[in-house]
Design a protein around this nucleic acid. Structure first.
Lengths: 183, 183
DNA sequence: CTTAGATTTCAGAAATTTCTGAAATGACTG
DNA sequence: CAGTCATTTCAGAAATTTCTGAAATCTAAG
């Protein structure tokens, strides 16, 4: 398969960006290619579209699968595996956020709690700082847990009118007295 | 300077995590060390607390400065540079988010717009996909721009009562008619 | 059971990133 | 403006990550 110039440039860009994230260039390229392909692709096709080795493709796909970022499809009468990305961009974003949280945030939260449990270490400042950090992460993950429950439609509304919401808070003292009275 | 076991473990953890982000181990460790130190530290101190080379410390600090994650202080009568992290965790988070946006999101948005301007490339699916992605990123960065304006206090409220807000949207038809009538 | 894809694994090669020590630069002090 | 201390730069060394080709494994079909 030969890529159109548009595809080519898109794929290369995501390869570059991939490195700024935690993922490597090839994985970024594979993902980008699947993302802009209307039909599922098999490993062979990816391999020659990106001019990489077959084994590299295999590892890249494995990595993407471990992130839940690609879907496996089967074409009747063909026993090769075909891959796609979900059509729904929101689904993709949700997956991305949730996986990054799992890998980047959760282990840290666990570690911080662990450190706190080890009890007073005679280093008040460090202890206070760790507690403070843990509390902030807990607040943010708590918020995230709530957001996670919302359907796409409401999330879009929230984002589209985001800022007004904050102003709105001030006007809801009656509904949520604890909300405006706190602190 | 010798680290307490608590500091040691904290620093090592952030070194590890650093790699899962885009930053390297040493940079993560330097940041972690500054974060849990009550007073500003100079390069020499960091160098021997972490057992790394002086030049590595210099490069790490430079990197952290380019991220705006670290503040330079001066101790009267001492001409060495001293470094700290901001006391306010919210400030740190804001910086982090804004820098990551600048490095990870903005260049992609620019690239996508650029690709769209190159005009019809006879690849309808890819073009549609790119437009869709651009729109989503625009919505999210728009939302972010609004959030950025909020003071900490309101942000905390928003996060603490996050989920209820979404429910609230439904009840504000009178205030924001376009909000509930859309689509 | 055998054969023919298809995919995965893995050890080493290649590429990239990180780290170091030495030298260069900068900047304050007497 | 010479001397001292602090910081930065940089070329090469060391470490790590990524990639490849060959071999191993897996799976469906005959």
């Amino acid at each position: 398969m030969t890529l159109t110039p548009l595809q080519q440039e898109f794929v290369l860009h995501f390869g570059e960006m991939g490195s700024r994230w935690g993922i490597n260039r090839t994985v970024g390229q594979i993902y980008a290619l699947l993302f802009i392909s209307s039909a599922p692709l098999n490993a062979e096709t990816i391999t020659d579209a990106l001019s990489i080795s077959r084994s590299n493709t295999s590892m890249g796909l494995k990595e993407l699968q471990s992130w839940n970022l690609v879907r496996l499809k089967h074409v009747p009468g063909d026993r090769r595996d075909y891959f796609t990305t979900p059509d729904d961009l929101w689904e993709i974003v949700r997956t991305l956020v949730s996986e990054r949280k799992k890998r980047e945030i959760d282990p840290t939260l666990t570690k911080l709690r662990e450190l706190e449990l080890q009890g007073p270490a005679g280093d008040d400042y460090a202890e206070a700082r760790i507690a403070e950090l843990r509390e902030m992460i807990e607040m943010m993950t708590g918020f995230y847990a709530e957001m996670e429950k919302l359907e796409t439609e409401r999330l879009v509304k929230l984002m589209t009118f985001g800022s007004r919401i904050a102003g709105l808070i001030e006007k809801t003292g009656g509904m949520f007295p604890t909300l405006t009275k706190r602190k």
